[in-house]
Design a protein around this nucleic acid. Structure first.
Lengths: 141, 141
DNA sequence: CTCAAATATTGACAACCTCAACTAACGCCC
DNA sequence: GGGCGTTAGTTGAGGTTGTCAATATTTGAG
């Protein structure tokens, strides 16, 4: 304990994990509420954000890291509510999911709100945000 | 753009949010996989971790930020699989959910793994972890 | 005692998720 | 061209999480 040796107790690691999970929950919950404002569920919102171009359902499944069969239902509901529509691609096996006008408007507005109103943005200084950015990169890399 | 003014573009804010969501997803997904190792879903694992003492279902509902009726089902499944059991409290309206032996063992092991194997712990230096801790505090505070 | 409030449960319904089985289309190779 | 493994998407079964409204029980305050 003399000077700072980089030693860490198990308790400290726990604490960090706990807060990490807490922030993750908060982030998710804020995102969910945001999605709800546009009459979307969290997963639907993630899908919509990904569809800046007509997107094969398969690619969507990978982006959402879920089974392909799951995307069928998600696409059904997006289509049913008028956010997206199915279009056959040149490869006639693949079906592209493509935003409707409503979908495009929603996507634009959603993307703007996601960038602006984040949990993060609210409470950190610009310097801290840069710092956080670097740390996030390292964790993701 | 002369020197650092703390000015940020919308694009930068977007980027930060995107990575924040990405880390949140990753954290959640790692936690889910961890829970699965113990034959628990993510929500069940969160409940188990919370039950360091007999816990009113109501309190559980608040901890999980969900409806009370939802906890009924979660408790059912935890009970059914032998992780927990229902006990009536002194106030006979409230039902305490309490870990069984198996539940306690699982909780201990789970807590240890959560602290140790986190996404965070893996890739950051001790100094960076301390830094991250401060930033997380600020975001949660 | 009476009655409002709190606790848990139930039933109805929706979304999400996985797995296994299936169809249709593609592309390669002989 | 004709097989044949591969890929994309769907379907159906089954399970977990989540909400809301209605209900029974208990509690505590007036």
């Amino acid at each position: 304990m003399a000077h700072d040796t980089g030693q860490e107790t198990l308790a400290e690691a726990h604490e960090l994990s706990r807060r990490m999970l807490q922030v993750a929950d908060l982030t998710r919950s804020v995102f969910g509420a945001l999605a709800a404002e546009f009459d979307l569920t969290a997963v639907q919102a993630r899908a919509v954000l990904r569809m800046y171009e007509p997107t094969p359902m398969r690619a969507l499944a990978e982006h959402l890291s879920c089974d392909a069969s799951n995307v069928t239902g998600i696409a059904d509901r997006l289509e049913q509510r008028g956010f997206a529509e199915r279009v056959v691609g040149s490869d006639r096996r693949v079906i592209l999911l493509q935003l409707t006008d409503r979908g495009r408007r929603t996507r634009r507005a959603l993307a703007e709100r996601v960038g602006a109103g984040s949990v993060v943005t609210a409470k950190l200084s610009p310097t801290e945000r840069r710092h956080l950015g670097r740390l996030l990169d390292k964790m993701l890399g």
